[in-house]
């Protein structure tokens, strides 16, 4: 069964003669547990597509569903709940909150979840342990390296055990050694059942994915061929909002 479906998604900016089509009639389906790389040149519409998939950018046309939920039929606050329960975000620029230490940054998605502080800390330490940073939990973001920041961002994205991980150029600011470490982490997460959707320019990174969506001028030019899945598939959100 298809977990994520995009049906003729269109996103236009501006109006009248100055309308710019960021993406046009993009349709695809992704099964739970897939590892998908979205590729294309700059301005192809990859990031717009990812933001739509992240429930943060309302398409001007088309329907986007996740696990049968018409995401853009939800109200703004329900979409915030959807993001918290279904999605983990990994940003290219890490986007860690500078005044919170590593474990606090990882705990951020749990802030509005009704759990005890100790439970939240345990979950955050597990996520940090997963990315190998449990010893740096009390450091501030400016006290760790770029690769470590990306791993903290991954820990933050997975702390609430979301079924979908969205990564926007996750290795864009990393050297080759850190790139490999991060990609291996994403691969392990995917093997553990998380659906990973990653925007990347890098063919090397895309090689870790089992499927490639290729975009050009806002259109999906290659839907990719899904490989059979052997790993577990995660669908239901692990936690509920407070």
């Amino acid at each position: 069964m298809d977990f994520i479906t995009a049906d003729q998604l269109t996103r236009a900016y501006g109006s009248g003669d100055s309308t710019v089509m960021a993406i046009t009639d993009v349709s695809f389906m992704i099964e739970a547990g897939e590892f998908v790389a979205v590729m294309g040149e700059s301005g192809a519409g990859k990031s717009t597509l990812l933001s739509i998939m992240g429930a943060m950018n309302t398409p001007t046309g088309g329907v986007y569903t996740v696990d049968g939920i018409d995401v853009y039929n939800l109200g703004q606050e329900q979409r915030a709940d959807f993001r918290r329960e279904f999605l983990g975000f990994i940003f290219q620029s890490f986007h860690l909150v500078p005044y919170l230490n590593v474990i606090e940054n990882v705990m951020l998605p749990l802030t509005t979840v009704r759990l005890r502080r100790r439970e939240k800390e345990t979950m955050a330490m597990q996520a940090l342990s997963w990315v190998g940073l449990e010893t740096k939990a009390k450091r501030l973001p400016n006290q760790i390296s770029g690769g470590e920041k990306e791993r903290v961002a991954i820990a933050r994205a997975i702390v609430n055990d979301p079924p979908i991980l969205l990564a926007d150029e996750p290795t864009g600011n990393l050297d080759s050694r850190n790139t490999q470490e991060v990609m291996e982490l994403l691969q392990r997460l995917n093997e553990a059942g998380t659906t990973v959707i990653m925007v990347t320019h890098s063919a090397e990174c895309a090689g870790y994915a089992r499927r490639r969506l290729e975009m050009s001028d806002g259109r999906l030019v290659n839907n990719g061929a899904a490989e059979p899945l052997e790993s577990p598939r995660k669908k239901a959100p692990a936690i509920r909002a407070a």
Binding site: E77, A80, D81, R83, H95, T111, T112
Partner: peptide, 16 residues
Amino acid sequence: RQEIGIFRAIGFRKRN
């Protein structure tokens, strides 16, 4: 703005 964007992206409601 950036920080608030992160909060909203990871599921903070408006009231949060």
